[in-house]
Amino acid sequence: MITTAGLRKSYGGVTAVRDATVEVLPGKINALIGPNGSGKTTFFNLVTGLIKPDSGTVHYRDTDITGRSPHRIAHLGLGRTFQLCRIFPRMTVLENMLVAVRRTRLRELLAGIGNPAEIERARGWLRRTGIEHMETAEARELSYGQQKLLELAAVLMAEPELILLDEPAGGVNPALIERLVTLIRELNAEGHTFLVVEHNMDMVMGMSDHVIVFDRGAPICAGPPRQVRSDPRVLEAYLGV
């Protein structure tokens, strides 16, 4: 689904991502794990166009998307959330949802927001994420967990094929994590592919089909959870030499 080849990005002296040749399997729940600072978020930013690589390429299906602007990559069907949840704090929950609906024609752009069909669709996602009762609240009034759910719901409004989640369970209570895992599983069954960065190992090992491990900016191994868990290189990366 996503294939990167020799992806590299440095910040001054720090190489955040190096020689990243990675494959994200279509139709699966892919996980991306690795110690703090191993380049997972940077990898996300490279794939979604938020930063440009120093070298290497990113392909989405058969399209070379290296260096494309983020909104064009989003239009291809990639949606993402951010590690530190990002929503539009001073907009209502419902308006947050509608930002992701794509507009191309001038008439659509000038129409008033809040077309009934779109609002219905937005409400559907809010119901599924369990925050429909908050729709008229300003997004900043939500709890952190609810904001994370809103961020995911807003991404889903764009109907992405591939969804990148950067630490969806970070800072979220266990009951919510449960709900999140169920939702990810359901969405996957409905045809969405996932790439999830996550430190919660129970969650990763429990739900993913394919795990990619990063260490110091480079992928060191990839495979099904059971295989990755017992790989000596992974143990070394996590436990230190």
């Binding site: 938020l50 602007s69 983020p70 993402r80 000038l110």
Partner: peptide, 28 residues
């Protein structure tokens, strides 16, 4: 007219968080 349009909603999203708006597909 702009403020109540979808275009205006996109502008507000830019005001709130431009990278986020861009990543949701708004041609900022």
């Amino acid at each position: 007219l702009i403020s109540r349009s979808r275009y205006g909603s996109g502008l507000r999203a830019i005001r709130e968080d431009e990278d986020k708006a861009e990543s949701l597909g708004v041609p900022t």
